[in-house]
Computed example of a mutant assay.
Amino acid sequence: MPNKEYYLYVKGKAIPISEEVYKAYWKITEHEKYLQKKDCKYGVISFSSLDHDGHFVDNIIDEKIDLEKIVEVKMQIEELNKALATLTKKERELIEAIFYKEESLRSIGKKEKVSYQTIGKRRDKILEKLRKLLEDKF
């Protein structure tokens, strides 16, 4: 069986190459195709595609991060903390038990020797107070 001849085409011309070079070339080419498919699947873009004007760093925008929303939420948290600071000690303890410690109204009622409905009414009253305080801010 005669030796098989291998060629690569460069600008339309067949260039004879060794089997070893031929296999190495196609291994690299297939790997590049594989990586391109993965990039496409996961939405990866190359830096060079961002460098259309020589300032690729300025062209990078992370659309997943909404800076305005982050600032807005941070301001809301600050206002909520200020509003919580205006509550009485007893009111603050109830809010902490319900929302931070995640205690049930029944367990809080048992501790305070009142019904869970009474605890629910207190909670609602406190939340309404907080809502009115925050309503003016937002």
Score class of each variant (00 low, 15 high):
4 K>Q: 13
8 L>T: 04
10 V>G: 05
12 G>V: 02
12 G>L: 01
13 K>N: 08
14 A>E: 13
16 P>L: 08
18 S>M: 04
18 S>V: 04
18 S>D: 14
19 E>A: 09
20 E>N: 13
23 K>M: 05
24 A>V: 03
26 W>P: 06
28 I>D: 12
30 E>C: 11
31 H>T: 14
31 H>G: 12
34 Y>F: 13
34 Y>K: 10
35 L>Y: 10
36 Q>M: 06
38 K>C: 07
40 C>P: 00
41 K>Q: 09
42 Y>V: 02
43 G>R: 00
44 V>D: 01
44 V>S: 02
47 F>C: 01
48 S>M: 00
55 H>Q: 13
55 H>L: 10
56 F>T: 07
56 F>D: 06
57 V>R: 15
57 V>W: 15
59 N>W: 02
59 N>Y: 03
59 N>E: 05
59 N>S: 08
60 I>F: 11
60 I>N: 00
60 I>R: 00
64 K>W: 13
64 K>A: 11
65 I>R: 09
66 D>N: 06
66 D>R: 06
69 K>E: 05
69 K>Y: 00
75 M>A: 15
77 I>K: 05
78 E>H: 11
78 E>D: 14
79 E>V: 01
81 N>Y: 11
81 N>W: 11
81 N>K: 10
83 A>D: 03
86 T>W: 02
88 T>D: 05
91 E>T: 07
92 R>V: 09
92 R>C: 04
93 E>Y: 00
96 E>D: 12
100 Y>G: 14
100 Y>S: 11
101 K>G: 04
102 E>H: 15
103 E>K: 13
106 R>M: 10
109 G>I: 11
109 G>P: 11
109 G>C: 12
111 K>E: 14
112 E>C: 03
113 K>P: 02
114 V>E: 02
120 G>R: 15
122 R>Y: 12
123 R>E: 13
126 I>N: 10
127 L>E: 07
128 E>C: 04
130 L>W: 02
130 L>M: 05
135 E>I: 12
135 E>C: 10
137 K>H: 07
